[in-house]
């Protein structure tokens, strides 16, 4: 293979021009997925962590089972399962709904553990000070504990969010037309790797700022001790 063969196979301007519209459609879907899946997962995780902090025995047993089960299942397996099993029970769900549900189950478990660590990092003194002034449990959680808890685990939250954003590419296995799916389809139609290279570039441009933010947060945490 000559250099020009390689360029034609991986960096082909003609193919790039032809498939870019298709890729941009995929990009929009990836962005939409992130916009839905990240808040849903984070809120689910917050709910798990706050409910765990209530310290009700049976509730905690259920939460531990929930978190452990969905952290043990590979996300890809979970997604295929969520997409393919409900139709047997008479529910037809769209690819998008399947992704949102599978991601809620998977990512809320991880977000939940992060929020839980944050809540546990806040000492008893903060609770006692707030409760002694007449604040209720939920008020103390919302105004005193959570703001500090989130700040304490911010790098972990950002890091997990980065993983979730990358993980949206697995939606391609159930043929949801997001960026990865668009790139693979375009590659198979054109017998050319240029669309994959483009998708790689798009992912990089999209996520690099988040990575940068993350390393700044982590350095700040190291600096703060």
């Amino acid at each position: 293979m000559t250099l020009s063969d390689i360029l034609a196979l991986f960096f082909n301007p003609e193919i790039a021009a032809k498939t870019s519209g298709f890729l941009v459609d995929g990009l929009w879907m990836t962005l939409l997925l992130c916009l839905v899946v990240i808040p849903v997962g984070a809120l689910g995780g917050l709910a798990v962590a706050v409910l765990a902090a209530l310290n009700r025995r049976w509730l905690n047993v259920l939460l531990v089972i929930y978190v452990d089960v969905f952290r043990a299942l590979p996300p890809l397996v979970l997604l295929v399962f969520v997409y393919n099993v409900p139709p047997f029970a008479g529910y037809r769900i769209s690819e998008f709904e399947a992704v949102v549900i599978a991601f809620l189950l998977n990512t809320s478990s991880y977000y939940g553990e992060i929020f839980r660590a944050g809540i546990e990092s806040i000492g008893r003194g903060q609770w006692e000070a707030a409760r002694s002034t007449g604040l209720g449990w939920w008020q103390t959680m919302g105004w005193v504990v959570l703001p500090q808890a989130v700040r304490n685990v911010l790098p972990d939250l950002v890091s997990n969010t980065l993983e979730v954003a990358k993980l949206t590419s697995i939606a391609s296995v159930i043929a949801l037309h997001e960026l990865m799916f668009a790139a693979r389809s375009a590659q198979q139609l054109t017998f050319n790797y240029t669309p994959l290279m483009l998708a790689t570039l798009i992912y990089f441009v999209l996520l690099w700022p988040v990575v940068h933010l993350l390393s700044r947060l982590e350095h700040r945490r190291i600096a703060a001790g």
Partner: peptide, 16 residues
């Protein structure tokens, strides 16, 4: 509790 003030050894102010 609103009518019973409490002051702690370690202050326990809200740092944020």
């Amino acid at each position: 509790r609103r009518h019973i003030g409490m002051v702690f050894q370690s202050f326990n102010l809200y740092p944020h």
